Computed example of a mutant assay.
Amino acid sequence: MIQEYIVPEEFSGVRIDKFLSESCPLQSRSFLQKLLKSELVDVNGKTVKSSYKVSAGETVSFEVPEAVEAEITAQEMPLDILYEDQDVILINKPKGMVVHPAAGHYEGTLVNGLMHHCRDQLSGINGVMRPGIVHRIDMDTTGVIIACKNDLAHNSIAEQLKVHSITRKYYAVVFGNLPDDEGTVKAPIGRHPTDRKKMSVISKNGKDAVTHYRVLERFRGYTYVECRLETGRTHQIRVHMASIGHPLLGDQVYGPAKQPFRLNGQTLHAGVLGFIHPRTGEYMEFSAPLPDYFEELLTKLRRLT
C-alpha cells in the first residue's frame, strides 16, 4: 500500500526523517529509518536520503509492505500448571518467558507451550498470534496467568477484566521506604512522549489506572510490598511505583540501572489471581509461590536490616 503526504508550509526546511515521524504516528521510527536507508522513500518521484530537507508542496511517498503473519508452532515444554479444566488453564509463568509471540520472539513463548499442551483447544478471539491469551504479564515478571480454551471462557474473563472484578495481587520489592503502610496510586498511564518503548504517568491520552499498595516488610533502603491492581495497564505497577519515587528493584527501564544484587529484570511476582468461573459461576482463587530468586533476595535483605 502506497502512502502519500503533501508537505505543509510549517514543515518546509525540515529533515525528511523528522517530517515522516511527525506525519506517520502509526509507523515506528525504526521502520521509517529502514525505509529511508533502503531508498524506498520518494519525494516528487525521486529517491532521497534521511538528510534531505523537504519543501512545502512536495509529495512524499513510500510503500508499506503487506504484513506477513509468522507461523506459530506448538512446542513441547514444561509448564507449571496450577489448575486446568475444559474452559481455563492457569500457569505459574517463570521469569524470562514471553507470553505470546511477537517480533523477535516466535518460539519459546507461553503460547507455543500452550499450543502443544492444549492442542486445538484454545480460544481464537485474539487471533493466531495469541490463542487463548486474555491478559499478559511482562517477560521478567513471574506468577499466575490465565488462558482460555474457548470463546465462552474468553469473553467471560475479558468482561471481568473490563469491569475490574478480577482479583490480582502482585508482590514486589521497591527502592526506599514508603512513608505509609498503605496507599493508592491513581494516575493515568499512556505511551511515553519521547520513548515509544516506555509507558509513563501522563494526563494527555492516558488511560485511567489505579494501583493499591500495602507494605509487607521494611528493610534498610528497600520495602517489600503487595500491589493490588484495580486496572491492568501496560507496566502499571512498574510505572506507578516509579512515579511516587519507589521504582521496583531490578527494573532498569523505570528505575536505577545499578543495584547491589544480581537480578535479571524487575522484582515482581503475580502471586494471586481470583475470578468467577465462566461456566460454573463459582469464585475461584489461585496463588503461585514466590520464585526461588525472590525468596533468596528477601533473605539477603533481612540480613542487612
Rank of each mutant, 00 (worst) to 15 (best):
I2G: 14
V14R: 11
D17W: 10
K18R: 13
F19K: 07
P25S: 10
K34I: 00
L35F: 00
K37M: 00
S38E: 03
S51M: 04
V54M: 06
F62K: 06
F62W: 04
V64R: 11
P65G: 04
E69F: 12
T73C: 11
A74Q: 07
I81N: 11
D87I: 12
N92W: 01
V99W: 07
T109L: 04
T109N: 11
L114D: 05
N126M: 12
R130N: 12
D138Q: 02
T142P: 04
G143F: 05
N150F: 06
V163R: 06
I166R: 02
A172Y: 01
T184R: 15
P193N: 04
P193Q: 06
P193H: 05
D195Q: 14
D195C: 13
R196I: 09
K197L: 11
K198V: 00
M199T: 03
I202W: 09
N205P: 09
A209E: 04
R214T: 12
V215Y: 02
T223L: 03
T223W: 04
T223M: 05
Y224S: 00
C227M: 01
R228W: 11
R228K: 13
H235G: 00
H235F: 00
Q236A: 02
G250F: 00
K258R: 15
Q259V: 13
N264E: 15
T267S: 08
L268T: 05
G271M: 05
L273H: 04
H277E: 06
E295W: 12
K300E: 15
